[in-house]
Write a protein that binds this DNA or RNA. Structure first.
Lengths: 340, 340
DNA sequence: GAACACTACGAAAACGTTTTCGTGTTGACA
DNA sequence: TGTCAACACGAAAACGTTTTCGTAGTGTTC
């Protein structure tokens, strides 16, 4: 097992001082051409690489971004991470990822650990439990310590920091407007209960689209799924006697259950009924029929979040710079679950 | 912006020496009950947390595991990460994730950066390009430096280190055996070209299953997909005139294309033909019909890899301990794409 | 009262860097 | 010959810890 080369070792070997070695390697003018060459040659030969930890301690920055997400086994979050990683690496940062598993405690602990020097700033999507609990002390604490924080997707209004979100309401409106443009008259909504913020916002988009088109609101066409595990049955029952010509679902899974239910009723998607979903994942692409969806552009969201964070990190007087909220445009991806 | 509390600051505030503070906080018997209480109270009040970077430098360990994977937007890898994270966190480690994007260069760079103190060891699934190139100098280098390395999934035979893999051949055999048990006589195979190792191994499992059951090998029932992007058409053509009663596909996507093609031929899955896939992902669960699959147990693979790595990290004389290769059992998940 | 053992604390080194400042050696110049 | 600047380098502090060792001060023992 070879020992890692340090400045000290090089200095001893070449019979100069540590400072000389350090300066030579950084091309300081203080060092003569001769010794500089000698030292650099030696360092290269034995593959010297400075110790990141020592540098971090010295510079009081780790060049590392901490990312905390509710869960990693989730296509959308991986696209966000992918976006974060790309711009982070480009700018010489690396990325530590922790999952909170939607647990408040784990979120707090992860933040505390990473805040103790491991990380220069955070990119975070809060855990469901945190949202419900309304306890944000861990967030305010890191902010008070001067660590920049960027929240994305699931953000907390009250916290004063940079944010990157999508316009859920507008996205939902887009989806429903698309259905209306196709000539659909009786459009159902499959959403989640309102305390899940996205459920609420997307429901609002649905309502706005209807009202803007002077279409009557029919409450019986709205389902708010309570228990995810029971959703398949719930949806099937909900769809059984409504004779809709279109459905907007707030996620892929609900859309697929809807299609399944329609099939069982002998209805064809998209001939008899159109289905559109929020969230564009692997499932949407491959399903038969493939799903028309609203794309959340996760990768761009990650990229923007990283850019925002790094800007704060590299700007010394960022203190008094105002916080930004970037809204990522959603996109309509037309596929085969809606008629043309 | 509050400044972070350090031992030095506490010492100054309480008019004792830094060493006294350090010792008091670690409950050293050298310190009198009185001062110990006083210091601990103060530290708690102002929420002192030791600086991880300083500890890393001092202890020459970072308590961090570096994970390098080919891509993160991939359900299987996220399950592995999830497993790694669970056992890592449990044992007080955190996890840095980097993606190589299947690029050799990025894999090398990531390893070099992380190896400079940021990380105590690696868990790695090599990039495709690395596999093709056959250049493993970055792997041997970190090993020589005494950093433990655990490879998973896509491993390199020649590298001497701990490994966690699944038995692709056995898994494939299981799948085909299942089809045979169901009474299928004419079983097709949709695989990848042989230089993708999993394609080769799974093909071998298919062959073994046939021969063990004394079934004749019919080369025309084997498709080796060359170009992933063209695979849909390729599969559709391949399936058009073979009148098989079952197909084993080496991944979800191929299986789905197969089902699509059968449908277009007017065949029903699973009534007329059974389809089974390797890799159990989101897609398999939700597709209609849902897919019978071979599950690779990614989470367990990650957990085992982490356990292996941490054992090496915590064992001082791990030098001469032999390397292990753990084989994760594959499981058969019966769903609706195979008849009962 | 001398010798000794505790007790409770502080000084300093170490981890691997960077950077400021000090200094010995040259050569030029008056 | 004395003064001074330029050059090339080294010593030391600093980042925040832990740990070893040294040592005042106190109390015990014969």
């Amino acid at each position: 097992m070879k020992k890692r080369l340090t400045l000290k070792l090089i200095a001893k070997e070449l019979d100069v001082s540590i400072s000389t070695v350090s300066k030579a390697l950084r091309d300081s003018a203080e060092i003569s051409e001769d010794t500089r060459q000698k030292i650099k040659a030696f360092a290269k030969l034995y593959n010297y690489k400075p110790n990141n930890i020592a540098l971090s301690l010295k510079n009081r920055k780790s060049k590392t971004i901490g990312v905390i997400i509710p869960e990693i086994v989730h296509h959308y979050f991986t696209t966000v991470i992918s976006g974060i990683e790309q711009v982070a690496n480009e700018k010489g940062y690396h990325v530590i990822i922790c999952t909170s598993n939607n647990s408040f405690d784990k979120e707090v602990i992860n933040m505390e650990i990473l805040a103790n020097g491991s990380t220069d700033g955070f990119i975070l999507s809060v855990a469901k439990e945190t949202q419900q609990k309304g306890d944000y002390h861990h967030l305010t604490e890191v902010i008070e310590q001067g660590m920049p924080l960027v929240m994305f997707d699931r953000v907390i209004e009250e916290i004063n920091c940079d944010k990157v979100i999508i316009d859920d309401t507008l996205g939902a409106k887009k989806a429903v407007q698309h259905l209306i443009n196709l000539g659909c008259k009786k459009i159902g909504l499959i959403s989640t209960i309102d305390y899940v913020s996205v459920g609420k916002l997307r429901t609002q988009g649905y309502l706005e689209a209807l009202s803007e088109n002077n279409m009557e609101l029919n409450e019986s066409l709205i389902l708010k799924v309570d228990d995810f595990d029971e959703s398949e049955d719930e949806i099937s029952r909900f769809l059984s006697d409504k004779s809709m010509d279109a459905v907007f679902a707030v996620n892929e899974h609900f859309a697929i259950y809807a299609i399944k239910a329609f099939k069982e009723q002998g209805l064809d998607v998209p001939k008899d009924v159109s289905v559109i979903a929020f969230t564009d994942g692997e499932l949407s692409k491959r399903f038969i029929p493939s799903l028309t969806t609203i794309n959340q552009h996760g990768e761009e969201m990650g990229a923007q979040a990283a850019r925002l964070l790094i800007r704060k990190l590299e700007n010394d007087d960022s203190e008094d710079e105002p916080f930004e909220t970037i809204i990522i445009e959603t996109g309509l991806v037309e596929r085969n679950s809606t008629k043309r």
